[in-house]
Design a protein around this nucleic acid. Structure first.
Lengths: 200, 200
DNA sequence: CGCCACCCGTGACAAAAGTCATCGGTCTAC
DNA sequence: GTAGACCGATGACTTTTGTCACGGGTGGCG
């Protein structure tokens, strides 16, 4: 019997996943939660065979939870995500995640993935894997990523500068170089593509 | 027995919902699909008692599918959504939707909602209802909404003008008045708040 | 050591975005 | 029939963004 915990912030989906997986004879969902911090606590308490973690989850995210769990508990983690961005897969694999599947996966496959992971194998969605392999490495520097992160919202340059404790001109320079690197015409466009790539 | 169709573009969630709802003795999922157009076809073919529709769904959306279904089939529709924006609820109710629940709803409640709707009642999530009632009516004109819709992406004014067959100056004027009405400092900010309100 | 990449900043300039006044046309409501 | 709201447009203006050249400082590497 594979013992499993499920973490997803959308109650409806979490409940449905629990119901779905409990239908399998060899899988038992021992606990579920709607927060990344809760997932860490549950993992330490129940010591499950596998942890199914949604990537988009307050207060941090599933990747953060996975790292914390794997540092303290002998278990496997599977990340489920809505938007499968290549860069995120890279970070996920670097942090020893065992499985990575998008929410577009057919439901019947999920149980199989969990079984494979429980058996010590790794499973990565082939589409995402291909995208991640063909994607080039991030060309942006740490500071460029910082200003792009702040550019995702509707903030103006002056506000970004204030938040990062930089001069407005410096922010504009970082944005300019970043835009040149990713071939964008506005900072919003650059931030968008950086997000799509999973760089921020 | 309540006959149900399920439409959601995320296979994993759709499969899980189907599994969850089929566990109920009095509910039977007769078909499911991942597109809004598919939902309309399935409704016409199976004539279910209730249609469970995700709001975010290609190629149009769940609201559009609901309208088309209700025009041609004697059935009830329930909208499920990730981001429950007040303005969307307003439009949903205007188009005779019977139920409106966010994905943060506890899973066990969903079956109850479906039963109520099948019995001819309406169900709206109390939180969203309260937000929709306290929200003021949209102050923007049709054209202002048009330009804001196009401003959601990373397009420049010239591109928006081209897409809408307008002069760039006209676009700027609409954006300027829209920004004044919603108290925003950039078109991105204005588009964001209009989106949050469910106006676009 | 020099070279290079990155960090942080300035100043000047061009392009894009946003503000404002004003115009004419349509359509609705009082 | 006229006042008001909306649509579409223009021109002049200010502010914000983005580009470019350049400065100094740090730290790694051959």
């Amino acid at each position: 019997m594979i013992r499993l915990i499920v973490a997803d912030d959308e109650h409806l989906i979490r409940g449905a996943l629990v119901a779905l997986l409990n239908l399998e004879d060899d899988i038992q969902v021992v606990a579920d939660t709607d927060t990344s911090t809760g997932a860490v606590e549950l993992a330490q308490e129940h010591r499950p065979d596998v942890c199914l973690l949604d990537l988009e989850m307050p207060p941090t995210d599933g990747l953060d939870a996975s790292e914390k769990i794997l540092r303290t508990v002998a278990t496997k983690t599977v990340i489920v995500t809505r938007h499968a961005r290549p860069g995120v897969l890279r970070r996920a694999l670097a942090s020893k995640v065992s499985g990575f599947v998008p929410k577009s996966t057919p439901a019947q496959e999920l149980a199989d993935v969990i079984r494979q992971v429980a058996a010590g194998k790794r499973y990565v969605d082939p589409e995402i894997a291909a995208a991640a392999l063909s994607a080039e490495h991030c060309p942006l520097t740490e500071r460029e990523l910082d200003v792009l992160r702040e550019s995702r919202g509707t903030a103006q340059i002056a506000q970004i500068a204030q938040k990062l404790h930089l001069a407005p001109g410096t922010v504009r320079n970082y944005l300019s170089t970043a835009m040149a690197k990713v071939d964008a015409r506005t900072r919003h466009e650059a931030a968008e593509t950086a997000w799509q790539q999973g760089w921020i």
